[in-house]
């Protein structure tokens, strides 16, 4: 990354924009690129199936670490939502496109639309100043899969060890748990939708598992091309 526009420095931390500009001549590839080449992932749209899995590639994933009170102030000012104070909380903004998730007592995962995370990171750094905190852009390391459809819960019931029933995973809850032989972050942002945050190197495995587990219901994995 040598372009001037993609680098910045706020305080003593060097940051850079992980989205190459359009003129950089780099085609971004989502973690599901290999699955796509293999034909496991199709373009968005098509015949209705009982379960729909849609990848949301290239979103901005930021991990915030630090004290809850200082971070809450900054996040409230920059995103307009408060940090989920209770364990396993998941908060969405009014649009539903930006979310803040409790990961552990001093760690939160922020997911924002593609391209916003660099600006957000810089603004948070500027606002937090000398406070004791860390912000890491982990967008390159993980991707988001959305599960919807009436059988989505049944699919999850045989894939994760967590109780995905309404009383175990109500709307506004997010847990890290075991998915098949790997780990995922399982989120419930709305009534109709589950979200899986999967690791990049396990993305193909997760998609294969989902396709296999969802075969009896009819399942399609979709991802918009870059």
């Amino acid at each position: 990354m040598s372009e001037a526009h993609s680098e910045a420095s706020v305080g003593n931390a060097a940051t850079f924009d992980t989205h190459p500009g359009a003129d950089a001549g780099v085609t971004p590839e989502s973690p599901l690129q290999w699955s796509r080449v293999q034909g496991h992932v199709t373009e968005e749209g098509g015949a209705a199936e009982q379960i729909r899995v849609v990848e949301r590639p290239f979103l901005g994933h930021l991990v915030l670490r630090g004290g809850a009170i200082t971070l809450d102030e900054a996040v409230r000012a920059e995103l307009g939502v408060s940090l989920p104070g209770k364990p396993l909380g998941l908060v969405l903004d009014a649009e539903g496109s930006r979310s803040v998730q409790w990961v552990s007592p001093d760690e939160w995962l922020v997911i924002v639309p593609a391209g916003e995370e660099f600006e957000l990171e810089n603004r948070l750094r500027a606002r937090l100043g000398d406070a004791h905190f860390a912000i890491v852009n982990v967008g390159g390391g993980q991707t988001l899969l959305e599960l919807s459809g009436e059988k989505a819960r049944e699919l999850l019931m045989k894939s994760v060890v967590y109780d995905v029933h309404e009383h175990g995973l109500p709307v506004g809850k997010a847990v890290g748990t075991v998915f098949a032989k790997t780990s995922v972050v399982l989120r419930r942002p709305t009534e109709a939708r589950f979200e899986l945050v999967v690791r990049r190197s396990f993305a193909d495995y997760c998609v294969r598992w989902l396709r296999d587990a969802g075969r009896e219901y009819g399942l399609r994995v979709e991802s918009a091309s870059p």
Partner: peptide, 11 residues
């Protein structure tokens, strides 16, 4: 004690 709920031993 941090998540404040019972979780599967596998985790």
């Amino acid at each position: 004690p941090y998540c404040q709920e019972y979780r599967e031993e596998e985790e």
